[in-house]
């Protein structure tokens, strides 16, 4: 069981952060929003529709209104940058080639990688791959954009770029954004609202400032990054002294 009694609402037009220690099922939560995983009980509603019960055709219709940025970009390795971004357009629309080119170049310009259009995914740095994936997630002009750990493993410059892009996309395109992350400082800069998940349920909710000044020990430990606290430093184990002296 990953979640139990989990209840959260994503406000429209805002950036909502979902935070929590590693292994709390944050990615699982995103996969339930996209309908790749179904909850054993309970409901997931997106744009008024119940995702778990949707037949494939309608689920695919709903997914066209969402974009998702995967942890490592998940670019299609046999296509170059341009074709990766053109992929959703070619699959779902019958736009003439001239228009496809136009749309793709516009999106690439937004993430600053128009010059990289003909590179292959293997030639990109981690930060560039994530920006390309961001352009791809936005190419069908989604209403909801999901980010899975967008900051992990980036150098400070790439990280700043991604942060700015998430904020700017959300505000200029009128998107609803959900950012799953455990990078507290980064999230605090851009999120309008935060949920802190631990042990399968929401333990705290509020603006980054509210969470930062919380006196709940778990929230305080997470926000300050203390090694020990309600989330123990040690993985559950038998008594240290007994195990060392017990031989084996």
């Amino acid at each position: 069981m990953i979640f139990s009694g989990l209840d959260l609402t994503i406000p429209q037009g805002r950036i909502t952060a979902i935070m929590g220690p590693s292994g709390t099922g944050k990615t699982t939560l995103l996969r339930m929003i996209t309908g790749q995983l179904a909850p054993a009980s309970g409901d997931v509603r997106v744009a008024g529709q119940s995702v778990p019960g949707l037949p494939r055709e309608q689920l695919y219709q709903l997914r066209r209104r969402m974009g998702m940025l995967f942890q490592n970009g998940a670019l299609l390795t046999d296509l170059d940058v341009f074709e990766n971004i053109a992929f959703p357009l070619r699959e779902h629309t019958r736009l003439p080639e001239r228009l496809v080119r136009h749309v793709v170049l516009t999106k690439l310009q937004m993430v600053g990688l128009r010059g990289a259009a003909r590179l292959m995914p293997a030639e990109l740095s981690g930060g560039m791959a994530r920006r390309v994936a961001m352009a791809r997630a936005m190419v069908l002009d989604p209403e909801l954009l999901l980010y899975d750990e967008p900051f992990s493993g980036l150098d400070p410059i790439s990280l700043g770029v991604i942060l700015r892009l998430i904020r700017r996309n959300n505000d200029t395109l009128g998107l609803t954004s959900v950012v799953v992350s455990h990078d507290v400082e980064e999230i605090a800069q851009i999120a309008d609202f935060c949920y802190l998940i631990s042990g399968g349920r929401v333990v705290a909710a509020g603006t980054p400032a509210e969470l930062g000044s919380s006196d709940d020990p778990l929230v305080a430990q997470f926000m300050s990054g203390a090694a020990d606290g309600p989330v123990p430093f040690h993985y559950p184990a038998e008594d240290y002294r007994k195990e060392l002296l017990g031989g084996g």
């Binding site: 790749q36 995967f70 390795t77 992929f87 699959e91 791809r136």
Partner: peptide, 16 residues
């Protein structure tokens, strides 16, 4: 493709 989430990415892009 499975290991690098490319198949998942396709699913999310509404491509089977």
């Amino acid at each position: 493709m499975r290991a690098t989430d490319q198949l998942s990415a396709m699913e999310v892009m509404a491509v089977n």
